[in-house]
Amino acid sequence: MEVVIVGAPNVGKSLFVINFTQYLGSREIQMEESSGASGLPRDRRLSFEKARRDLVSLYSPKTTQIQTMTAHVLINRQPQRLYLLDTPGINDGIAPDAAARWQIARTLERALTATTILHMIDASLVATRRRESLGAFDMAMLGWGRQLDCYGVIAHKMDRPGSHEGLRILRTQFPDVPIIPVSSITRRGYRELKLFLVRALT
């Protein structure tokens, strides 16, 4: 079962995927990069600390390709493999770089066939006028998502100031979309998110 996490750059997709994998009880990160140096998928095993150090950046977008992490959840008491797809952040407008455009196309392609799409939004910026606040891409995703029954919004960075206001705005603007407030620093909302996924997958 595939869960694709999409969103604008720097909303916290990579850190979330790493921490959520840890929350689900994995002992290490088992990751498949969509293309290694040889052009073939590459498997890597990382400790959580190393993954956080290598894969997450505080300021500039870091993820440049789809990374698949494997975790397990119990569904009807059976462990089911769950693939969490960490994707490069998608900016509004046409990307100048051909490689980036290729990755965007692959990300959307995977989203089309995924079991569930999780759309991540930085809740602390929704109420501001920064570049990362709700853009055209986010609006388009939300418009698409409300037609799907396998779609959820993660209001991320709920530990930041202004995030509660952002969450309130999201909830009033999109009352028919499931919105789960999450913080990957405090791990708030991981439990709700796991329940959401288990429900969506059964």
Partner: peptide, 30 residues
């Protein structure tokens, strides 16, 4: 998808087009 790769289509304008194709296809496979 090809249009995105070629730089003819921005993601935000691609999604409504994909949604029209997907809502039927993927919810069925789902």
């Amino acid at each position: 998808l090809n249009s995105i790769e070629d730089g003819r289509l921005a993601p935000e304008s691609a999604i409504p087009l994909l949604a029209r194709g997907k809502s039927a296809t993927v919810s069925a496979s789902w």
